[in-house]
Design a protein around this nucleic acid. Structure first.
Lengths: 137, 137
DNA sequence: GCTTGACCTGGAGCCCACTCCAGGTGGGAT
DNA sequence: ATCCCACCTGGAGTGGGCTCCAGGTCAAGC
């Protein structure tokens, strides 16, 4: 039940001041309350919503789709089914994204190992015949 | 040991023709061989390199850093240590990326569950006091 | 012999998501 | 009083990564 200055919100949410203003402009944030001087005063609710935006953004949802979600939330209780659908769809995309990352990561790790093998071989002048092999005079 | 037309490479790698030309222009691909008519003919090696590019790109490496890696690869065997370092650093970033995604995903799933709970409650007209509770006349 | 289609070039354009700027206001500290 | 700082606005600019375009060249099939 308190209010926050733009600076505090930027600090807390990690969004820049410009980004906060931008989000309000495009309607991703509803118009933020102002004090007498016209300066923004964010509410706890705004902070909460920004947390949601953070999640969606960080998981790669484009702004256009976040706007669709925003519309749904503003549309009231009748839209809850649609919100679930939207979020589930996104959840599956995130899952796919992670799976893809893991695959690519595995390939990168194989490459690293490949390079390590090359280095290892290089540091082994007499490859497979050193300690116990008596064939070298 | 065969050659591929741009169309085939696009098909196989998922990069568009324009992107392939773009990558060559900026030096992410070394100059591709040409036939008599000046048309590109990609080698198996090119395809392999594009696979690597795909991995790095899909895991979020910016082009500028892929160019650094490209330079190292062109720099010959002495750069293998540096290549390992670069790829390991990236590998850790991918790991962090995945962890972050998982966290955000969990939050999204909680939100979905929250919405589901609301719907469930709605479909239960007499919330917690129906079958066995005799306090309702 | 003409069309079609895959390719070529240099350069311009586009989209997304910010980010920056100039010029201005109001309020608190020294 | 004056300074500084955090904030305001509308609009322009940026950066990354492509993507598109006009105008042109070959090669093969009908």
């Amino acid at each position: 039940m308190s209010v926050y200055t733009p600076g505090q919100v930027a600090e807390e949410t990690g969004f820049s001041l410009d980004t906060l203003r931008y989000y309000e402009r495009i309607g991703l944030l509803e118009p933020i309350e102002r004090n007498a001087a016209g300066q923004r005063r964010f509410s706890d609710e705004d902070i909460g919503w920004l947390g949601m935006v953070r999640c969606l953004r960080d998981t790669g949802m484009p702004i256009a789709e976040m706007l669709r979600f925003t519309e749904l939330v503003r549309g009231g209780g009748e839209t809850i089914g649609d919100r679930i659908t939207l979020l589930e769809t996104h959840d599956h995309e995130v899952e796919a994204q992670i799976a893809r990352l893991r695959e690519r990561q595995a390939a990168i790790q194989r490459k690293i190992q490949h390079y390590r093998d090359i280095l290892a071989q290089r540091n082994t002048p007499t490859p497979r015949t050193r300690p116990e092999d008596p064939t070298t005079p």
